[in-house]
Computed example of a mutant assay.
Amino acid sequence: MKFKNLLIICNTFPDKDNTFVAGIFVKEQVKHLKKYFENIYVISPVAYGMEYLRKTHLEKYTFDNVHVYFPKYFNLPFFYFHFRDFWVNLEYSCIYDLIKRENLQFDLVHAHYTWPSGAVAIELKKKFRVPVVITEHTHITLYKELKKKNKQYINTWKQCDAIIRVNKKDIPLIVDQGEVPAQKIFHVVNGFDPLKFKYITKDDARHKLGLKNDLKIVYNVGRLYEEKGQNYLIDAINEVVKTRKDVLCIIGGSGPLRDKLQNQINDLNLQNHVLLIGFVPDELLSFWMYACDVFVLPSLSEGNPTVMFECLGCGKPFVGTKVGGVPEIIISDDYGLVVEPKNSKDLANMIKIALDKKWDSQHIKRYGEKFTWENITKDIISVYMKI
């Protein structure tokens, strides 16, 4: 491959020990892309004040041949709604200064999300004369911008060299804007790292976590944000336990809705049936996944959730909502069940069906293995080569 060094621009990126997990799917992808390059540089600009709001502290770090930077810059939320070009200019200046200061040399830019990272990448393309690939991950945001025929999005897509979309159904919507040729848009899903999920029996996993073997365990992990829909899951469990008392729902992850969700659990008297366990460190991810009977993702919006592939790769049935690329992956009742978002009663019914059904875990696992990052990064490299 002619590329030596890759520059990645992304809106968010995890810290060194993954206690800040926003953009974790980008980091997992990078871990497998790195073998194709001499160096990968990741730049994720952070506006002053954001670390305080997120309760994080982000510092540059290196793993193997990957170098991660979090340059600080001045910005205002006002620019998100008005004069958005100012936002792009501020990020571009911040990134350009870092590139010159660190003397970074790169042959290709891969931006995650069209805005602002993709728009910034186009400015880098003009300056450094390198090709740009943009992966668009969003769901609701993308539809809003397409409906508005957002010129900033369209101009960014016109000027980049390739677009990666994580689900198929949205590609015609982008083409229908009339200015982006279909041949520059590629469908590449997200993936998962099987090495993070070393097999362990359900009994051993439950013993490690102090969970009873006679329970039916429903598991969810993700950021505690509105779009992840954990409040609908809690309501669904409230319906489930009306007919069976052996169900325990484990919700892993941290975020601003923790107190609100805990209050919901308390109000419904579900303290014995729903537990918020907080941030799940990497070394416990496989234990929680293998301890459960079914994994549930009640999201209101998704691109193509990494945790879905992790679930399938561990041979666990997946119950999720019909958002983003989920229906394109859960193509058979042999792998899981899907429901409309924001419908707790239907979600409860699907959970009950999933808990009663006899699943072929090896069949699910074989299907999930198609989506390892090792396989998915080959598709990404193919896109790089085409440009």
Rank of each mutant, 00 (worst) to 15 (best):
Y61N: 12
E145N: 10
S93E: 14
Y80R: 08
E136Y: 10
L211F: 14
S299M: 01
R244P: 09
Y96I: 08
T62A: 09
F128E: 05
K208C: 13
A236Q: 12
I250K: 06
R244F: 11
N304K: 08
K216T: 11
K245I: 11
V241W: 08
R54C: 05
E28L: 04
I134K: 04
E226L: 15
L6T: 12
S361T: 14
G222P: 00
I171L: 03
K60H: 11
G336M: 08
I329M: 10
G210C: 12
V307M: 01
K242N: 09
I164D: 00
I43V: 12
D360Y: 10
C94G: 06
V338K: 01
V339N: 11
Y73I: 00
T19I: 14
E102P: 02
L108N: 08
D107C: 07
L33G: 05
D203F: 12
N18E: 10
A111N: 06
Q152S: 06
N304P: 02
Y232A: 13
Y69W: 07
I140C: 07
W359N: 08
V46W: 01
E179S: 13
E179F: 13
Q271A: 14
D293E: 06
A291N: 04
E374I: 05
P116V: 01
D204M: 10
V221F: 01
V338I: 15
T243Y: 04
V323Q: 01
G222C: 03
G368Q: 00
C160W: 02
T201Q: 11
G325A: 13
I40C: 06
E51M: 04
D15M: 15
N263C: 03
Y52Q: 13
T138D: 09
L261R: 11
K260P: 00
I277Y: 05
A182F: 07
Y61Q: 11
D334Q: 15
V88A: 00
Y52D: 15
R54P: 00
K342A: 15
D246S: 02
D356I: 12
K34T: 08
I140Y: 12
I95R: 05
V46N: 00
Y143V: 08
L276N: 09
G320R: 06
N65P: 09
L146R: 02
D193W: 03
N167L: 04
K352R: 11
N231A: 14
K228F: 00
A354D: 04
F70C: 07
T56G: 05
N269S: 08
T372K: 15
F83S: 00
Y69N: 10
L261N: 02
M385D: 08
D204Q: 11
Y113L: 08
Y80F: 14
I217A: 09
I163S: 01
V180N: 10
V296F: 13
Y199E: 15
H82M: 03
T19N: 11
F318D: 13
L98P: 05
F37K: 07
Q183F: 07
F309C: 00
E227Y: 10
K126V: 12
S301A: 11
I95K: 03
P77H: 08
F287I: 02
C10Q: 04
K208E: 12
N65Q: 02
G255Q: 04
L146V: 12
H112V: 02
H67R: 04
G368P: 06
P256N: 09
V326C: 02
I380T: 12
L300I: 15
L355K: 06
K34S: 07
G278N: 07
G303T: 15
T243C: 06
V294F: 04
E102G: 03
L195I: 15
